[in-house]
Design a protein around this nucleic acid. Structure first.
Lengths: 224, 224
DNA sequence: GCCGTTTTGTTCTCCCGTTCACAAACTCCT
DNA sequence: AGGAGTTTGTGAACGGGAGAACAAAACGGC
């Protein structure tokens, strides 16, 4: 029997996990506007989703709303943050300080959401002279030492594609178990290591596909 | 009856569309290695997916393989590129030339995959003096003129969150129907306009969730 | 020309996620 | 205190995608 454990109901679907940060961002926005209470309808509108889906998603966390009233913005905000695990700061290293690495190092959205970039690494000695976002770029060889010193949770790969697998291997060997990969490559990692990838050109290609579909009048066939 | 239209079978599932660019990238890699033919098993390994899924995905495009042999790398590469619509160059404008905008403007992966950045726009006059990636940064007010002059397919938003909705509105008014949004905001757009979003901190938060789950021993409950 | 081998294309089944619809529960007003 | 009006939480139906399994088709050897 699957009795509900009241404070931490487990097995949150992956699709829901992917939306929780969106809800969190919406709640922060509402709080900044001075809203103290909101209905599922309002929050769903802010997050850009269906209200039924929102309620079902929140129900996996527990019953944090009040029927007939709605949700307390601050309370729900805390509960979601706790569930995601961003109530305490998480340490991040960024490897590959090219254009994208610069942008990531300077991105304020990380800091404000509980992520602290503790080190910037690059294999190119020329880049190791630089100071980016208040941190000096260090040698990639320092990875193990940095991971051991700070308690690094997450590694970000912003290197060219050819270097990405090597970087990932070193990260895994150093004990990192979560990787965010911006390099356009499929990474092979052992079980237990999570990899998420962000590929900018793939997103554009998906848009291009739909764009092409639009320009063709419905029912018209393109002769090859 | 749904008779198969031989050259362009329609209704490709969204999940498949999202993987086609991955297959395309894998095929380009194989071609560079000198491979002229590959089986679904090999290609699937390169793309990091199940071979059954790969075959099913490709079957939506048509029958481009040869049973008992496999796929011709160049031929399949062209067919997928054509299906996605990246055989002819697509014009892109980037709005918001901060750190991320710089990185995007300099990203070589766009050009090599059939996307041509034709203009960089920023509302800040101070930035309009700059030259980035061989293009001079122009005023955001030039948007309409640029869209009209070049045949712009896609708009990329790399502005702060507060400006994103305004930029999107102007893009839509100028006739852009595909938007890639890097700002951490939900955009409201009319029907017929496609928006894809990339939120870096959301990706990190998803990793953080799984990271938290790992650190707690299975079955252990966290007291709040 | 025929048979065994290989590999694709497709069918079938299962599972996850989305959506609908409604009962439970809370507030407010009288 | 009781009833009307809201809004949450959830059970159930529905649709789409993932994976296994197999039939169809092409090649190579004899």
């Amino acid at each position: 029997m699957t009795a509900r454990t009241p404070d931490s109901a487990r097995d949150i679907p992956e699709a829901t996990v992917a939306r929780l940060p969106v809800y969190l961002r919406a709640l922060i926005g509402l709080a900044e506007d001075g809203t103290t209470t909101c209905s599922s309808e309002e929050l769903a509108a802010s997050a850009g989703v269906n209200s039924a889906k929102l309620r079902k998603d929140l129900s996996y966390l527990g019953s944090y709303g009040t029927r007939g009233v709605g949700y307390d913005v601050e309370y729900l905000r805390y509960q979601i943050a706790r569930e995601i695990g961003v109530t305490q700061d998480r340490r991040v290293v960024i490897v590959g300080i090219g254009n994208l690495g610069h942008a990531l190092a300077n991105y304020s959205g990380f800091r404000s959401r509980g992520f602290r970039v503790v080190a910037l690494l690059d294999a190119d000695p020329a880049r190791q002279a630089e100071v980016v976002a208040g941190l000096d770029v260090r040698s990639f060889d320092d990875l193990e030492a940095i991971v051991a010193e700070h308690d690094v949770s997450i590694g970000v790969i912003a290197t060219p594609a050819v270097a990405a697998q090597d970087v990932a291997d070193r990260m895994v060997a150093a004990g990192i178990t979560s990787i965010l990969n911006f390099a356009p490559t499929v990474l092979a990692v052992p079980d237990g290591v999570d990899v998420r990838k962000v590929d900018l050109s793939i997103e554009l290609q998906i848009l291009a596909y739909h764009e092409q579909r639009k320009s063709v009048a419905p029912g018209t066939e393109v002769v090859s």
